[in-house]
Design a protein around this nucleic acid. Structure first.
Lengths: 216, 216, 216, 216
DNA sequence: AATGAATGAGACTTCATTCAT
DNA sequence: TATGAATGAAGTCTCATTCAT
């Protein structure tokens, strides 16, 4: 007699929640966050607009959740690459960076949305949080590298942050696109990943004294 | 005297026209077409919103003009690569494809805007037109290749269209990814350009009878 | 040739601005802030909804302006009463309090809107600001009263703040309406203004030592 | 047994009914009818939103019931004043009017909600009905006054209606102030109740020939 | 009978476009 | 011709009401 949230209801709610999130994920993958419209999302997810607001307090919150889901996958791929690659620290870091870059270049719209698209403050905050997540993963690997001798002793926390900034901004950096005065059109480049890798690993391994050596 | 006055006016108008177009170009390069707002564009170009409509009948038309200007540069770069590369037809085509891809990957926001961003129908039509422009350039080069023996005899018109579709969609295809049903997250890849090149050139050179050979 | 904001345009804009503000003022006077709807306001003011947003950044800002205009009138009435009443300080303060209360009771909806209606944060901030305005006016009058001997020596700043709180909350206080547990319906009272005046003036004149005297 | 069960159920239902109504009453007393929201009301009453609709067909009907409960109390207070005041008819009417006005001024939010707040048509209809209730009470007292000589002979039905209109509109009239064209801000007044009383009693006692006397 | 998830009309706000100056 | 104030369709979000459980 009294109402009980049956298993059926719970399951339906979970399904609706996922349906909204997955549909939104596809929309972001198609065109980025800016083209996600609540009415259209509701239509595609097969619910009313009001329903969206039963599951998420705002569009911003919904997009933040989409961002987290998508980024969580990327983080875990990087983590996998770090853990499962056979080799010493430097090699494992190289593999992880490569995985990150390749996945980004393979799905550039999604990557652009996750890394560079202008977004609401809440989503931007999530970006910062995930940068830290990446940094911690790299930090551990750098410590391993120092222990196994593949990397010189260094401040791993600083280095890991630098790595994250380097890989993200290298993919995004060229995105950071054309301020007034630049030549928008004259852009030439070699391959993307190789130089990034080279720069990152050189940054990790070229310890100060090595730099000095080169001054001779 | 009347003529001189007209000259002055004409020059001033050309200047305003260019100012609007260049300012819009920067805005597209920054965030894509979707973030171009007429009021903001007018402000940055130093004119009134009404003035924009003296030079362009609509935002759509203005964006189309911006698209054409930007794409024209890319076309000419490809054309240069085709004309100035030393070597036979296949090599020149490879160089042109590389130039196209490298430039796109170097300025992904602009590339995404030109190739993949959802845009108004008029701009989309311009996209189709430019695909033909690219195709004609490649068509000539394929004919050269056939003549110099670097490419087997084939339908150059068809092949050139295929080339354009291949390079564009290879860069964009993963961009407009994630149709309902795909696995958005499981995307692994090797480098971007190399496999594209391999595929395109194999497509141009692997003539039917060669295919038959492999059947043995 | 070049556009100039003519006197005509400037005048029309001022008219539109005033029309919006005055129309909103009437709507507040009719039903309070909560029933002001932008579409209806635009209709009554004879403009498009978008026009409202050319003159005010938001409904909240518009309501704040309405609040300020209406309250400014009340402040000036109180100021007049303080300045123009013949008599010593205490009498002038009594006159000012009476003017304030009478005007409030004469237009209770407006008074309720200005003093007690739940409103947006920006309007609430304006309320605080105006309380200070009132307090400063009373502060000067209290100083006068001390000088002319009609009031005992006291901290005028504190006293003026107390006065404002007293008069506002006395009119509102009974408004502060019925928390769970109170008897909502059993409310009896004598006249409104007389007891408020008595309390306020007693507060200003009954200095500590007088209080002690009564203890004998 | 079946009967007993029904009794229990009936009692529980009555309790829920009352709980909803009392909770709503508090909400009206806090901020008026416009801020009553069904979801919030359900939460505070400890039931589900759907339950509200088992007891009331609509928000409008619920608010009407709240209105009736609250107004019923006021009517009975006026009735008490009429019945329990010692004195002749005119005095008893004066006492009743005073009670009504004092109670209203003591709880202005509630009074405003009951008398002047813009409400749904159904609630407005209830307002009209209660005006008649008040009028009948006054009508009886007027008859008494005529009998005991404290009031001149007159059409009691007409006079009672006038009384109700007078007291209500005197409190509210300035409330629903400010029609387009009025001076919203220039409102001065003496005490509220005294002049209302004077006007009402003068209306009841100043018979036509008395009016003629003043013409001398 | 009670529950609360779902609905969708309507509120506030933005921005491409028009037009009197 | 250039201007920018004015317009109103379309977007996000709220809340009274419905209905499967």
């Amino acid at each position: 007699m009294a109402y009980r949230e049956t298993e059926k209801v719970r399951s339906r709610k979970a399904k609706t929640f996922d349906s909204i999130l997955v549909t939104a994920l596809y929309m972001v993958a198609e065109h980025g966050f800016s083209t996600v419209q609540m009415a259209e999302l509701a239509r595609r997810a097969g619910v009313a607009t009001g329903t969206l607001y039963r599951y998420f307090p705002s569009k911003e919150a919904l997009c933040t959740e989409v961002f987290k889901r998508a980024t969580e996958v990327e983080v875990s791929k990087v983590q996998q690459a770090l853990e499962q690659t056979v080799g010493h620290g430097a090699e494992r870091i190289a593999a992880a960076l490569t995985v990150f870059a390749e996945r980004a270049l393979r799905a550039p719209t999604m990557a652009w949305a996750l890394i560079a698209e202008p977004v609401d403050p809440l989503v931007d905050q999530a970006r910062l949080d995930y940068r830290q997540r990446y940094a911690r993963l790299f930090e551990l690997a750098i410590h391993d590298g120092i222990r196994d001798g593949s990397l010189p002793d260094q401040n791993a926390q600083f280095a890991s942050t630098a790595l994250v900034g380097c890989i993200a901004e290298s993919l995004v950096g060229p995105l950071a696109p054309a301020r007034q005065g630049d030549d928008v059109t004259t852009l030439d480049s070699a391959h993307i990943i190789a130089p990034i890798l080279r720069f990152c690993l050189q940054g990790l391994t070229a310890s100060p004294y090595e730099v000095h050596r080169h001054e001779h």
